[in-house]
């Protein structure tokens, strides 16, 4: 399924509360969001719940989705990540509060930066990711999914910390560059 069709499904939800469109999005994204949560270390049950919550948030926030600012996958990714962050915060022992205040829920709109606002940037980035040298691509993946990024990468790739840092910097530089001036 193309990137565009995911965006169109979100629009269908926003405009017509289209349950069929939701079912299609759910079938594609919910199992992947669950994998993402598992990769970050979430227990199976938590990962399943967060995948549910993510897709329900997609339904509720569909009207906020702006396909000219972000691809569907980027938008859904940020929703999933923010939900995990909120859940993590709620599970933490916090200091006693001066009064009773709830946690503020993170804002799920795509980051409102003027940067990278082109509709085709995701496609360009996808290509650029594929074109990265294998080690750099691996490093970016590890930085995403490993628990203690620096140390884990150091251990897994048997690469000194300085090299890890400079290769990641190089990878980000290449990705930025491939997006042209707006990056």
């Amino acid at each position: 399924m193309s990137v565009d069709s995911h965006s169109r499904l979100i629009r269908r939800i926003a405009e017509a509360a289209d349950r069929q469109a939701f079912a299609v999005l759910f079938t594609y994204f919910a199992p992947r969001v669950k994998t993402y949560m598992r990769r970050l270390g979430a227990a199976d049950r938590t990962a399943e719940d967060l995948a549910q919550e993510t897709m329900l948030a997609v339904w509720r926030k569909a009207a906020l989705f702006d396909p000219s600012r972000a691809a569907a996958s980027t938008w859904i990714f940020t929703i999933a990540r923010n939900l995990r962050f909120d859940a993590q915060r709620r599970s933490r022992p916090t200091e006693p509060l001066p009064g009773e205040y709830d946690q503020v829920t993170a804002d799920d709109r795509p980051a409102a930066d003027a940067l990278l606002a082109l509709a085709d940037r995701d496609e360009r980035l996808r290509l650029a990711l594929h074109r990265l040298p294998a080690t750099q691509a691996k490093l970016v993946q590890l930085a995403f999914f490993e628990d203690r990024p620096h140390r884990e990468i150091e251990r897994m790739l048997d690469m000194p910390l300085g090299t890890v840092k400079s290769r990641l910097r190089a990878a980000m530089h290449r990705l930025r560059a491939c997006l042209g001036d707006e990056a």
Binding site: F29, R32, V33, Y36, A70, A71, A72, S73, T74, W75, I76, F77, T78, A80, R81, P110, A111, D113, L115, L116, R121, D122, L125, R126, L129, V140, Q141, F144, M172, L175, R176, L179, A183
Partner: peptide, 14 residues
């Protein structure tokens, strides 16, 4: 800007 870029990468990886 880098975080926005990384979020796009996140969407791709997802």
């Amino acid at each position: 800007g880098d975080l926005v870029l990384a979020e796009v990468i996140g969407g791709q990886l997802l």
